[in-house]
Nucleic acid binder design. Structure first.
Lengths: 337, 337
DNA sequence: CTGTTAGCGCATTCAA
DNA sequence: TTGAATGCGCTAACAG
C-alpha cells in the first residue's frame, strides 16, 4: 500500500522548504530551473497528488457540484444526468448525487447534505409533492449558485432550464387536429408540478386555435379510475385521439383501447410524452414529444459552472431558458390529410 | 447572503476558546452544563455547520464514495445506482459519480479523478472494452476499498458483487427445454465481459444436462449480421427458441421473427435478459431473467462502507458474492408441458 | 472545567 | 531565488 506523499515529504527529501516545492509545482516563475526540475521530477516519481481538502480549506472551493433529482426510473432523468456528467467531467468538477424519491423530506435533507458538503453549485429538480421550498431558499441564501431544471417553481427565484412544455403539447395536439381528430383526450400528470399545467395549457391553446370547444369531460386525471373512465368514453364513442402526459400513461391508454377492440391509429390516435425507450418498442410504436433531456442537463450544469468560475457577478438577473421539444411521429398516429 | 460561521466565530462571541466550543459541540463530557448550553444555543442560532474540509484534513476521511459506471442507458445500471444511493444516503456518505461510457480512457481518468478526490471507497463496473486494468490496481494500491459489481475481471483481485449469470441462463434455457424446445439459439453479448461468457456456460450446461448436443451454428454474435443470420436459420426451420443476452437483443429477434411471419411463442419462444422496462411493454410481453440490480448496488455499497467504517482489517479475504436471478415468465414463452 | 499549543497540507505573504 | 511565518477550520494532547 503506497503512502500518499505530501509537499512536505518532497521538501524534506530535497532539503528545501515546502514553500519552494509549492512554487515549483504551481508554475510560479520565481524559482531556478534547476530546483524546479528536481522537484517536478521527484513529484512525478513519487506520484504526488495535491490534497484537495487543504486547497478547499484555503480557497473555500471544492469543485463539487451537487445534484438533487427525483428518481431514475424515468429515462428522462438519466439523460439529464448524462448531460450533466458530460460537462462536469470535462471541466474537472465532481458530481455529488442525491435522489429525492419525490419525497419532500428526503429532498430537504439532500439539500442540507449538499450544503453541508460545501458544494460550489447545485442543480436540482423539485420533487413532485414539495409544498414548502425553504430548503432551496437556504441554498440561495448561502450564496450557492442554483439552477432548477425541468420544473418551474414560482416560489423560488433562481435560474431555470426547462423544456417548452406548452409548445410541445400544442404541437402534439395540433398534429392530432391536422389528422382530423376533434375529440381529443388529455391525460394529466401529477397536479403539483409545472409541466402538467403547461402541457395542459398547450392542449387548450391548440383546441382554441382550431375553434374546438374545450370539453372538460375529456381531461382525465392519471389516477386509479383512469382505465374505467377511459373505457366509458371509448364506449360512448366520444374519443378519436389521446394526448397523454407521459409515454407510460399512453401505454395504459393503449391497453384499454386494445381491450375495447379498437385500432390504433385507425380508430384512435395516441401521442405520448418524453420519448422514453418504451415508446419505440410498443406496438404500434408510439408517437411522442421528444425532450432534449441531455441538453437540459448539459446546459444547466454548464451554466452553474460558468457562474462559479466567474464568481457570482453581483446583481444577477435570473433567467429561464426554454428548450424546444420535437414531435416524433411513429405508428400510433395517422398521417396528416 | 448569510456568512458561514466557524467555531472561532462562536468562540469569539462567547469569550471562550475554539477548543471549548469544539468540545461542547462534540459531546465531550469535560465541560460545564452552563457553557455547553450557551454554546449549543448560539451555534443553533447562527446555523453553525462544521466545515468538512477541516475535518477531512485532520482525519483523512471524506465520507465520499466514488462510483464508476459504464452508462445509464440500460435501466439495469439505474437500479444499481438507486440501490447504492439508498444506503449511502442512510449512512451519511456522499456519492460521487463518474461514467466511463464504456471507454477505457474515460474509465481510467475517472479512477484517477476519484483517487485524487480522496474518496474513502469505490464501487465500479469495468467498462466493456477495457483490456488493461492498472487504474484499478492503483486504487487498491492506494489502500482505497474497492468493490466491483456486475462483471468479473480476472485480473483484478478485489471484492465482487455480481448476479449469478450462469444460473440465470441455465434456468432460462432449462425452461425452454421444459416447453419442448430443442433448437435453441443463444445470442451473445459483448465478447469482452464476463457476463457474456457466464451466460453462455449456463446455456451449454442446460443443453448438456438434457442431452442436447451443442450446435455452434446456433450461437450468434450480436453484430450487424445478426438479423441476416437469424433470418436464414428461421427459414431453414432450425430454430424453436431464442435465448438472448439482453432484452434489447430479444426485441431485435422478435422483429425478425415477426417479419418472417412466425408467431411467438407458438413457433418460437423467446427469453431475454435483465428485465428492462421494455420487456413488460413489448407485444408479446417478454419473458426474461430478472436481475436483483437494486440489491447489487445496495450490497456492494454497504460492503464498502462496512469496510471503511471498521478500517480495512489487515489481511482481507476477497470474496465474490453471487446474487440469484429470477426467471420472469410472460407471454413470449410457452407454458411448460 | 477551560485555555494553550500544535498540526493536518497547502499557498501566500514578507524577509533574507 | 529561497526560507520563515501565517492561516484556512478543526480537534487532540497537554497544562493549568
Amino acid at each position: 500500500m503506497k503512502k500518499r506523499v505530501s509537499i512536505t515529504d518532497i521538501a524534506r527529501a530535497l532539503n528545501v522548504t515546502p514553500s519552494t516545492v509549492s512554487r515549483a509545482l504551481n508554475g510560479g516563475h520565481k524559482i531556478s530551473e534547476k530546483t524546479r526540475k528536481k522537484i517536478i521530477d521527484l513529484a512525478a516519481e513519487l506520484g504526488y497528488r495535491p490534497n484537495p481538502f487543504a486547497k478547499s480549506l484555503l480557497y473555500n472551493k471544492t469543485y463539487n457540484i451537487g445534484l438533487v433529482i427525483p428518481e431514475f426510473t424515468h429515462h428522462f432523468f438519466n439523460k439529464v444526468l448524462n448531460g450533466i456528467e458530460s460537462v462536469t467531467y470535462e471541466r474537472g468538477y465532481h458530481l455529488i448525487i442525491c435522489t429525492s424519491d419525490n419525497l419532500y423530506e428526503k429532498e430537504k435533507k439532500s439539500c442540507q447534505t449538499l450544503l453541508d458538503a460545501r458544494v460550489d453549485g447545485m442543480v436540482a429538480t423539485v420533487a413532485n409533492n414539495s409544498q414548502s421550498f425553504e430548503h432551496y431558499k437556504d441554498i440561495i441564501d448561502a450564496g450557492v449558485p442554483l439552477v432548477l431544471i425541468d420544473r418551474i417553481c414560482e416560489d423560488i427565484e433562481t435560474n431555470y432550464v426547462i423544456t417548452d412544455d406548452f409548445e410541445g403539447a400544442r404541437q402534439a395536439v395540433e398534429h392530432l387536429i391536422s389528422t382530423d381528430c376533434r375529440k381529443i383526450i388529455y391525460i394529466k400528470g401529477p397536479d403539483s408540478i409545472s409541466t402538467t399545467f403547461n402541457r395542459y395549457m398547450g392542449y387548450v391553446e391548440a383546441l382554441k386555435k382550431h375553434n374546438i370547444p374545450l370539453n372538460e369531460e375529456l381531461v382525465l386525471a392519471s389516477d386509479d379510475d383512469l382505465p374505467k373512465k377511459l373505457r366509458a368514453l371509448l364506449q360512448e364513442k366520444k374519443v378519436d385521439a389521446i394526448f397523454a402526459f407521459s409515454d407510460y400513461l399512453a401505454y395504459d391508454a393503449l391497453k384499454v383501447i386494445r381491450e375495447e377492440g379498437l385500432s390504433v391509429p385507425e380508430d384512435i390516435s395516441v401521442i405520448g410524452y418524453a420519448d422514453e425507450p418504451i415508446a419505440t418498442y410498443l406496438s404500434p410504436a408510439l408517437s411522442t414529444v421528444q425532450q432534449p433531456a441531455f441538453d437540459i442537463g448539459r446546459i444547466g450544469a454548464s451554466f452553474i459552472m460558468d457562474r462559479i468560475d466567474k464568481g457570482s457577478s453581483a446583481e444577477q438577473d435570473f433567467f429561464t431558458e426554454y428548450l424546444p421539444t420535437k414531435l416524433v411521429l411513429r405508428a400510433s398516429t395517422k398521417k396528416p390529410v
